[in-house]
Simulated scan of single mutants.
Amino acid sequence: MRIGIVCPYAWDVPGGVQFHIRDLAEHLIALGHAVSVLAPSDEDTPLPPYVVSAGRAVPVPYNGSVARLNFGFLSAARVRRWVHDGDFEVLHIHEPASPSLGLLACWTAQGPIVATFHTSNPRSRAMIAAYPILQPALEKISARIAVSEYARRTLVEHLGGDAVVIPNGVDVGFFDRAEPKHAWLGDVLHDSGGGRGPTLGFIGRIDEPRKGLPVLMKALPDILAEHPEARLLVAGRGDEKEAVAGLPAGMRDHVEFLGMVSDEDKARLLRSVDLYVAPNTGGESFGIILVEAMSAGAPVLASDLDAFVQVLDGGRAGEIYPNEDATALAGAANRLLRDPARLRELRDRGSRHVRRFDWSTVGSDILSVYETVTDGAASVAADERPGLRARWGLARD
Rank of each mutant, 00 (worst) to 15 (best):
R2V: 02
I5R: 01
C7M: 14
P8S: 11
Y9S: 07
W11M: 07
D12H: 14
Q18V: 12
Q18S: 08
D23N: 13
L24Q: 15
L24A: 05
L28K: 05
A30P: 04
H33R: 01
S36R: 15
T45G: 03
L47S: 06
V51M: 12
S53K: 05
G55V: 11
V60Y: 15
N63P: 08
N63M: 14
S65R: 14
S65Q: 14
R80K: 13
R81I: 03
V83M: 14
H84L: 10
H84S: 12
G86N: 13
L91W: 03
H94E: 07
A97E: 09
G102Q: 14
C106P: 02
G111Y: 00
G111F: 01
N121E: 15
M127W: 15
M127C: 08
P136V: 04
A137P: 04
S142Q: 05
R144Y: 10
R144T: 08
A146C: 06
R153A: 12
L155S: 10
E157M: 15
E157N: 15
L159E: 04
A163S: 06
V165K: 07
P167Q: 03
D171H: 12
F175C: 05
E179C: 07
K181P: 01
D187P: 11
V188C: 11
G193M: 09
G194I: 09
G194H: 12
G195Q: 02
T199F: 11
L200F: 10
D207V: 04
G212D: 10
A219L: 05
I223T: 03
L233F: 07
L233A: 02
V234W: 02
V234I: 08
A235Y: 12
G236E: 09
R237P: 01
G238K: 15
E240A: 14
E240C: 09
K241Y: 05
R252Y: 14
D253W: 00
V255Q: 10
E256G: 00
M260I: 01
K266I: 09
L270H: 08
L275K: 11
L275Q: 12
P279T: 04
G282L: 15
E284Q: 08
F286A: 12
M294P: 04
S295L: 09
A298I: 09
A298Y: 15
L301A: 02
D304R: 11
Q310T: 01
V311T: 03
G314D: 06
G315W: 13
A317V: 03
Y321C: 07
N323M: 10
E324I: 00
D325F: 13
L329Q: 01
L329M: 03
N334A: 08
N334Q: 10
N334S: 14
N334D: 06
R335S: 13
R335Y: 00
R344W: 08
R347D: 06
W359G: 08
T361I: 07
V362G: 02
G363R: 07
G363W: 00
L367C: 05
Y370R: 09
E371W: 03
T374F: 06
S379R: 08
A382K: 13
E384V: 00
W392H: 05
L394T: 09
